[in-house]
């Protein structure tokens, strides 16, 4: 039976993805800063899907701990999925370097740190799958997502580069750009119903992308075209817009 590692498993998307893979008979490794919070999810997955589910402490910001974290996983996961991320208030972040640094380090640096380690292991094994949950916010820099968007842009570029690097070694990399999703992160925003996905829809799309070896997925299909339009607005026009 194959094993999947979910990094950032306390998030709504993380838990939905874990359950989707468990339903398809993968053993599950849930990793989060506070794994005790995940004990109920652990029993749920084990009972509901009759698979093994283990909990692991993982702190995205503690880069030097990542090597040891990955080494201690038994067995090593066949699929590594990076779901963690934070979205702080952009005005606060602009004023306060610590908030900016934390947003960059969680959404980009921390993800690169752990996925480099997973990639090196998969290169040795000559097989494996890596999934990164990035964001449509990384498609083009704009005021309302200044730091978050640029960190996600960097992460998207990293995933694309990694896919290119690992392709020859039979290792597949999936970039996920979910668009709006109903999660704790967006609980207080009023989102357009048609454009917003449930965490379970993201999970279905991720599972499907892993099985069918898709490269870049958007969950709700029209996001691909929305972003295509946004990316094609000339910069002299774009800079004047409130986005």
């Amino acid at each position: 039976m194959a094993t999947v590692l979910v990094l950032g498993a306390t998030s709504d998307m993380g838990i939905a993805i874990a359950k989707k893979f468990a339903e398809n008979k993968y053993n599950i490794q849930l990793a989060a800063r506070n794994p005790d919070q995940l004990k109920p999810a652990q029993s749920d997955i084990a009972i509901r899907y009759s698979v093994d589910c283990t909990l692991h402490a993982f702190d995205a910001l503690n880069f030097s701990s990542h090597e040891r974290f990955f080494n201690e996983l038994v067995p090593k996961p066949d699929v590594t999925i990076s779901v963690f991320g934070i979205m702080d208030d952009e005005l606060t972040a602009f004023d306060d370097w610590n908030t900016t640094a934390r947003m960059i380090n969680t959404n980009f640096t921390g993800a690169v740190s752990i996925l480099n380690i997973a990639a090196k292991y998969y290169m040795k094994e000559k097989k494996g799958t890596i999934v990164g949950i990035s964001s449509v916010a990384g498609e083009r820099g704009r005021e309302s997502k200044l730091i978050y968007g640029s960190a996600k842009a960097a992460f998207s570029a990293y995933l694309a580069g990694l896919r290119n690097k690992l392709y020859k070694q039979n290792i597949h990399v999936v970039s996920v750009k979910p668009g709006f999703v109903y999660t704790r992160m967006t609980e207080n925003l009023s989102l357009p119903k048609l454009l917003t996905a449930q965490p379970s829809e993201v999970a279905d799309a991720v599972y499907n992308a892993v099985v069918k070896k898709k490269n870049i997925i958007y969950v709700k299909w029209f996001w691909r075209y929305i972003m295509l339009i946004i990316k094609n607005i000339p910069e002299f026009q774009f800079k004047k817009m409130n986005l």
Binding site: P40, S43, I47, R48
Partner: peptide
């Protein structure tokens, strides 16, 4: 509704 785990069976 989001607090819906099975704890034991």
């Amino acid at each position: 509704l989001k607090y819906d785990n099975i704890l034991s069976f």
